[in-house]
Structures are given as C-alpha cells and as structure tokens.
Amino acid sequence: MNSKVTGGIKPKHQRLVLLLIALVALIGAGLLAAYALSNQASYFYVPADLAKAPPEQGRAIRLGGMVEKGSLKTRADGVTIDFIVGDGKARIPVRYTGITPDLFVEGSGVVAEGRMEGNTFVADNLLAKHDENYVPRQMGEMTAEQAKQVVAETQ
C-alpha cells in the first residue's frame, strides 16, 4: 500500500496506535479520578464521629445533627452566627457567616458544609429542611440509628 503520506505506518498499526493512545488517556483519567476522589470527596460526619476521629484540619466535610437549644448567638456584625450542633453524644461549635435558610431554627436538624478550624466547625453553607415535601438529600443521609438518636434528643 501507499505509505508515503503516512510516514510508513501500516493501516493496522495506525488503528492500534490510536487505540493505544485512547486507552492510555482513558486509563490515566480513571486513575487520576480515583486518586482525586479518595482525597477530595467530602465525608459526612455526625458530632460523635467528629469528636472520636477528627478529620485533618481544613478538609472539606459535612456535619449533620441538631442545633442545640439556646446555643444560637448572632455576632455584632449581624451576619455571623455561632451555634452548637449535637447528637446527644458530642457537641461541636459551629460558626457560619451568611444568610441562614428559612427553616433554620434552634432545635431543628441541620447539615453544614465546611471544615474544621481548631475545635470549631466553620460552615460555608447550611442546609435545613425546606418544607415537608422537599428535604435536602443530606438530611436523609444519617443512618437510621443516628436519626433515631437525633429525634430522641429533640423530644
């Protein structure tokens, strides 16, 4: 066959080379993804887990539990709040700067996205139960046992 234009590669080989390149790239993507996922996925914690085995500082995690009654305080700037999230076993102080969701009140469940800084959980985002029909998925992520504890605590 005419091999002038293709630099002497046989057609079979060309297909093989292309296939090889594509495979290498895709496997590379897979490995990269696996590596990054194990480092970057954000885990869900309840206060007890967080107290028992704290994650490294600054790592993105989510914290779910109940907002302790009487713990909610607004700072002088009017937009930063401090409160305590508990699950009956441990209590974690949380700081959040921003507009709170509508149904965020003391004694209700909350999921906070953020990270540990010192002994305080600094939240970037709060997810509260929106209404009876539209519950954030994360609220449903507590295991049955955790949920039971949380409910028992509030009653």
Binding site: A25, G28, A29, L32, L37, A41, Y43, A60, R62
Partner: peptide
C-alpha cells in the same frame, strides 16, 4: 472522553461508596 469519564466517575462515586456504607459527596474540589 477523558472529561466525560471524570465527570461520570465523580457522579457515580457517592453511589459506589454508599454500597460500602460511607456517605460522601463529591464537589468542585
């Protein structure tokens, strides 16, 4: 296709870990 694979894996990862009892979410990081 590489980006596609990465997005697909990232989207399915929480489902895969849930099978092993770990609750994770995968986001912008």
């Amino acid at each position: 296709c590489g980006i596609l694979g990465i997005v697909l894996l990232g989207t399915l990862y929480p489902l895969m870990t849930e099978a092993f009892g770990a609750k994770v979410s995968v986001g912008p990081p």
